[in-house]
Each structure stands twice: as structure tokens, then as C-alpha cells.
Design a protein around this nucleic acid. Structure first.
Lengths: 339, 339
DNA sequence: CTGTTAGCGCCTTCAA
DNA sequence: TTGAAGGCGCTAACAG
């Protein structure tokens, strides 16, 4: 059907090897022949079959990217940036959307990327078995989430510092009843919610504020979950005057819940998010900003470097800067408290 | 390094052909042998090399998905849904993020998907040359954007009807100065902005409202662009009392601009969006809802069907339902008009 | 600088 | 029901 390397070779009157060398820019081909080959290849619309060349060379020029939810802003943004780095370097991206436990399980048992990719970027946090499965691929591994783990290059942020800056901000404003909307750690083996929770507890403790379990609710890292969680918190006998949400999407859900209850941020309740979602500014959300796209790009670059220099010891952990962005959803508590 | 089909064959004491047949569930293998092969394969962690099998069979079990901006909510959501359909059916997804003209050009000249995919789902609208390039791949083609085009199955919405419902809603509320924030059609060869504009002009005409060019501004389909566009409109000698934005992201930018000008929707200006973005509800945005994920899923399904039934004539155009969702950013104009 | 010779790992006839 | 042989299209030695 489509032209093969032999068609080109025949048309030019050289051997297939020469065509192969010429088209891949390898040395050992006269300029004259190289030009003729390029011309004929273009005219025939020849593109080397990736299957055949990777079978022969062992290189796939493909990167596997594992994502929990492509549609979620954070992951979409990381993926976008990473893909650009990969494609610029001549690599294709094989995308695996592993949101549900079933797809995830199927992926890790069948491991369809085996012999198919030169490296893997995981935007989800593999548990120990999954990590081992990925390591068994024998290719460079990186992730933008979770803590350090053997065999992986991790590009991330200081979750503790980020959380501390958010909660301290609320404390400094004078809040004493500070709630938290966290994300389920559930099947994701995600340490982020836990680390952020610990930091939250520590800041409360250092401020001499007693922790109240009724001030914590799970928001599942979604807008809807955030709304539910805020609704829960508002139903407490003594609701919080401020809330730290572990993600902007949950914070936005919280804002929606407030609106539904005819309450306002920051007048009735202050709200801080985490991420600096592209729409955080639209709703005026105070939040902890992290460089999302940059994390994806950096992880991609580190992976490519490992591919280029197979010998070198890759960096284990790269920390990106975070900063608190003050907007309009936080203020001192009302003199008399809500209501 | 990793186990090959021969390793499995040897370990079981059968030939490679039998292993191949057994593992792919083809007939002609006794149950007893099949079970033994399955066991050994699992134990050895054997996965067939995709490169080798597609080289031999001609099937890649891979779908190419072309996306202009993975990080944009609309595309991320479509991709998410499509990927789920593909992976459930046993296909992998090769992702191409073709936002910039350069990446796009490189993609269409080199066409790296040649011989690499069984089908292509394009979330961007190819121009005529690009369409021809894709057709030259000789695989089923689908898209979720733009109008009907030869060789493609199109899953979309009725842009005209959607726009009409939005603009008529504003007219019915009593607005006469109705602005529009549109998206650049620029290098994307996107007919959507044009169709929506035509529908907008038609509704104005049918309502006997004279069109005022100063009431149109370009928002580039981004939040920032929407903000700029709204700012522009507000600077007009007679600013609009209502604005139709061609996407929710631009509408949200418009809301931000209003806030910056200490104006409110709908008190000072009514705003309608298009898409029903997941956060539209958070900001109370009235909008034209379209089934975004469903479009991706449906397009994916239609592509798979073409792969299953190579003979059948694929549907050319599938229309998905839209509906106007009334929220809190639209209301009748103020008795005296703004200011 | 160029051609020849072997595979890469699997699937698909065709025989048995 | 199974095995043997050949080839998918390309790349990597090795010659020349």
C-alpha cells in the first residue's frame, strides 16, 4: 500500500541501508545521494514504519504517560506541557488514562507499554507493586506527584511548605476555627493529602489552636466533592470561619456551597485553595500557586536527558517553588463570628 | 531481556505459533494447552511486543488523537472520554498536541502516524491539505469539531441552534445592545466562530436590532482573551447591556473584566457563555450546554465500529443535543441602561 | 561511501 | 490440534 524503504531504494537506485542512513541523518552518505533520496522519499510520501524500525533498533521513540484524569485541569496542564517537550524532541506520546481502579489494574497487570516505550512519565502515584511493575520495564521513570521512590525521578513541590503558608495566612488573619477540605487518599496511594493534613495540624498546634475533627471533611478533589464537604462543615454545631481546601477545584466547590447557603467569602467564611487553577483568578480565590505546566515540562526534560545519557545518575527529586497568592476570598473573621 | 514468545513456547514445550494463537484467543488450541500457556506466560510476565505484532499483522491497535490544546477543558474532557472508549476496546492512544502552527505543520508534513495507527480522531479542524494528508493514511477518520468533510465522521452539535437560543434569550429579556465575544478563526480553520457569528447576526436581524460592529470583540477562546474583549466592549461609546461569549472560558474572562471595572453580572451587563464548563455552575454562568464528553465517546465508538466493520458505510454526521442552561448572569437590562 | 547479510519478535499461511 | 517456514519493514553489523 504505502511506500516502503525498498520502493525508495529502488527508485533512487541504491540499497535500503543507504536510504535508511540518509533519512536518519547518519554519516556515511554522500550529499548528492542524500539529496536524491530525500527528494524521492518526499515525492513518494515515504515515512519509515515505526513498528519495523523499533523492532529492528529496540528504540521506540515513544514515551508512555500515565494520567489519572486527563480532563482535570491539573493533569491536563501537566500533560500538555510534557507532550510539547517530548514531541519537540521527536518522541511520540502514548497516553494511558487510568482513572478507575479497573483500568488501572488492567494496565498494571498487562503492562501494555512493555517493549513499547523508551520511558514512562507517571502523573499518578504508583503503589509499591505498581512501582515494581514499572521498574520491571527497564526504562527511565519519572513522576510529578508523590514522594521520592526508588527508580523514579520526582518533580514536585513542597506540600508541607505550601500548606503551611496557606494555613498560617488564615491564622494571621485572626481565624481560630479553621476547617480543611481534603482529598480522599483512597485507592490512589496518594501521600499528598496526608502531608498536607499533617502540615495543617502542625500549624494549628503551633498557633495553640485545638484541633476539632468536625472541621475536616473530604472533598474528593472534585468541585462537587468540595461543595459537599463545605456543606458538611457548615452544618457543624460551630462552623469554621475559614477553610483551607487542598485543591482549587474543591475550593471552588466550597464557594458554590457558600453561595447556595447565601453566605459569602470572605465575609462569612474565608477560603484558601491550592494550585492556582487558571480560573482561580476569575473567582478571586486566594490560593497556593504551584508551577503546574513547568513541572510537566521539567519531568519530561529529565526523562529525555536520561535517554540521552544512559550512564548518568538521574536526579532523584526536584523541588519547584510555590507561593501564596492573595486574592479576595480571605479576610479577618467577623468580629462576632458568623451569624 | 524480557521474555519473548519463544521463551514461553520453549517453557511450555510447544511452538511459538501455538503460543501466539493461544494468547490471542484464536481457535485451534486445546483447552489444556491453552491453560498451560496462559500460566507460563503470566509467570514469565510475557507481553507480546506491539512493534513485532503490528509489523507482522498490519494492525497496530493504536488510535491517533490530534488535539489543539490538551490543557483546555473542552479538549481535555473530550480526550478523556474518547481514551476510555478506546482503551476499553483494547486500543492504545497516541496523543499529538498540535497547538502551535509549527508543531502542526511538522505533524502534517512528516505524518508520524503513518503505519502507526489504525484510525485517527482529530479534535482540531484540518484544512483541506491537512484533511487530504489524513485521508492518505488510509484509515478511518473522525472529528468532534467543524463541519462535514469528505472522509470524516463528524460528531458535533448544532452551533447555529445553540447560538440562537443564547442570543434569543438575551433578546427576550429585553436587551437591544447585545455584544459578542468571539474566538479567532485564525490559523485553526475553524468554522465554529463563523457559524456562531452568523447565527448571532441573524437573531439580531430577526429582532429588528441593528448590528453595531463596536459590539464585537475577539476573545481568542481563552480566559485572558475574554477579559480583554470585555474590557474593549466596555470602552465603547455605548457599551452593551448583554454579551454572548462563544465559550465559557471567554465568558469567565468577561466576568473577571466586569469585576475589575466594579460592574456586576447581571446587574450591569448580562453574560451568556457556551459549553457548560464544569465551573460554569460555580460562577453562576448562564450558558449553552453541550455534551462534551459524550461527543468524544461517541466519536470513538464510531471509529471502533468502522474498524470492526470495514465494509459498512460510516455515518457522516452525528448531531448531539444542546440546551440553554439558565443561571445567574442574565437578567433584563436596567430600566435606565448602564450608568 | 555503499551494499550485503542477518536478524528484531511476531503472525500467517500451509502441511502434517 | 499443532508445527514449520516465510515474511512484515527496517536497522546494524560487516564487507568492500
Amino acid at each position: 500500500m504505502t511506500a516502503s524503504i525498498n520502493d525508495v531504494a529502488q527508485a533512487v537506485g541504491v540499497s535500503a541501508s543507504t536510504v535508511s542512513r540518509a533519512l536518519r541523518g547518519r554519516p556515511g552518505v554522500s550529499d548528492e545521494v542524500r539529496d536524491r533520496i530525500a527528494a524521492v522519499a518526499a515525492q513518494l510520501g515515504y515515512t519509515a514504519s515505526r513498528s519495523a524500525s523499533s523492532l529492528a533498533s529496540g528504540r521506540t521513540y515513544t514515551i508512555g504517560v500515565l494520567v489519572p484524569y486527563v480532563g482535570r485541569w491539573f493533569f491536563g496542564t501537566v500533560l500538555d506541557a510534557a507532550e510539547k517537550v517530548f514531541s519537540t524532541a521527536g518522541y511520540d506520546v502514548l497516553l494511558y488514562n487510568l482513572g478507575s481502579p479497573e483500568t488501572r489494574k488492567r494496565f498494571f497487570t498487562k503492562l501494555p507499554v512493555r517493549k513499547r516505550v523508551d520511558a514512562v512519565l507517571s502523573l499518578l502515584i504508583p503503589d509499591d507493586d505498581e512501582s515494581a511493575a514499572l521498574r520491571s520495564l527497564g526504562v527511565p521513570l519519572a513522576t510529578t506527584v508523590g514522594g521520592t521512590r526508588p527508580g523514579f525521578t520526582v518533580v514536585g513541590i513542597d506540600d508541607r511548605a505550601g500548606t503551611e503558608s496557606a494555613v498560617r495566612h488564615l491564622v494571621n488573619l485572626g481565624h481560630r476555627r479553621i476547617g480543611m477540605i481534603s482529598g480522599a487518599s483512597g485507592p490512589l496511594h496518594w501521600t499528598t493529602p496526608i502531608e498536607r493534613r499533617n502540615a495543617y495540624l502542625d500549624v494549628l498546634a503551633e498557633a495553640g489552636i485545638e484541633h476539632d475533627a468536625a472541621l475536616e471533611a473530604d472533598g474528593d478533589y472534585t468541585v462537587e466533592g468540595g461543595e459537599r464537604a463545605m456543606t458538611e462543615l457548615l452544618a457543624a454545631s460551630r462552623p469554621p470561619t475559614a477553610v483551607f481546601a487542598q485543591s482549587d477545584e474543591m475550593a471552588m466547590g466550597a464557594l458554590r456551597a457558600l453561595r447556595r447557603h447565601r453566605l459569602k467569602a470572605p465575609d462569612d467564611v474565608s477560603v484558601v485553595g491550592f494550585d492556582d487553577h487558571e480560573l482561580a483568578d476569575v473567582v478571586g480565590l486566594t490560593t497556593v500557586a504551584q508551577p503546574v505546566a513547568e513541572q510537566g515540562a521539567e519531568a519530561a526534560r529529565l526523562l529525555l536527558r536520561q535517554l540521552d545519557e544512559p550512564g548518568a545518575e538521574p536526579p532523584r527529586h526536584v523541588q519547584m517553588p510555590i507561593r501564596l497568592v492573595l486574592r479576595e476570598t480571605t479576610a479577618p473573621p467577623r468580629p462576632r463570628g458568623p451569624q
